[in-house]
Amino acid sequence: MTPVVPVAGRPLLLGLAGLAVVAAIGTGPVLDALSAQDDIAMARDRLARAQAAALAPPSPAPLSAADEAGLVAAFQSRLSALAAERTVAVDGAGIQPDPSRPTLPRLSASLRGTAEGLHGLLDALETGAPLVVLEEAAISVERPADPEIGRATVLRLTLTTRGVLAPAPKATP
């Protein structure tokens, strides 16, 4: 025997069935809207990071030249310009080719100066253009201070960095 639903309960059952159909149909767009909202939030985050990167100051280019002689001259010139602004003397600069990295030869330099002068020179080398990143630095006392005559301590700085040998531009006919 099949259950008989009274006539008064049928509209209620039809209403509940209709509500279930509407809920099933409406769930898809709601879930899609929630997913789209997450996608929009991620896109806004990427846009904010891209805008911040675009507004950031460009990083300085590394010290580079087309050949080894030009690289040493550029390095010597950079050191001399920075030394002239401080209490530092450049005793010499040279190049040491690296067979394992031929386009990144080692550059070395020897400088003398006060602690403040050498510190300022190193800071300017690592933050200004062209960018010079130190691999090694050794500081030793060249001449101790003499308080009787007011002479400051003179330090010797020997540093090693890398330069970039840029390929020569190709001539266009």
Rank of each mutant, 00 (worst) to 15 (best):
P3V: 11
P3S: 14
V4F: 01
P6H: 09
A8S: 12
G9A: 14
R10I: 12
G15M: 01
L16A: 07
A17N: 05
A17F: 04
V21Y: 02
A23E: 04
A24E: 04
I25D: 13
I25Q: 15
G26W: 03
P29E: 08
P29Y: 03
L31R: 15
L34F: 03
S35E: 13
M42Q: 15
R44A: 06
R44M: 09
A53W: 11
A53K: 15
A54G: 11
A54N: 13
P57D: 08
P58G: 08
A61D: 09
A61H: 02
S64L: 02
V72I: 04
A73K: 01
A73S: 10
F75Y: 14
L82F: 03
V88F: 01
A89P: 00
V90T: 12
D91A: 06
G92H: 01
A93C: 04
P97E: 04
S100Q: 11
S100G: 11
P102K: 09
R106A: 12
L107M: 07
S108I: 00
S108E: 09
A109E: 08
S110G: 05
L111E: 09
R112W: 02
R112H: 10
A115C: 00
G117N: 10
G117R: 07
L121V: 01
L121P: 10
L122W: 04
L125R: 10
L125D: 07
G128P: 02
G128F: 00
V133M: 14
A137T: 08
A137C: 00
V141G: 08
V141R: 13
E142D: 14
E142N: 14
R143H: 07
P144S: 05
A145V: 02
A145I: 00
D146H: 11
P147H: 05
P147Y: 04
E148D: 12
G150S: 06
A152E: 14
L155Q: 14
L155T: 08
L157M: 06
L165Y: 01
A166M: 01
P173N: 05
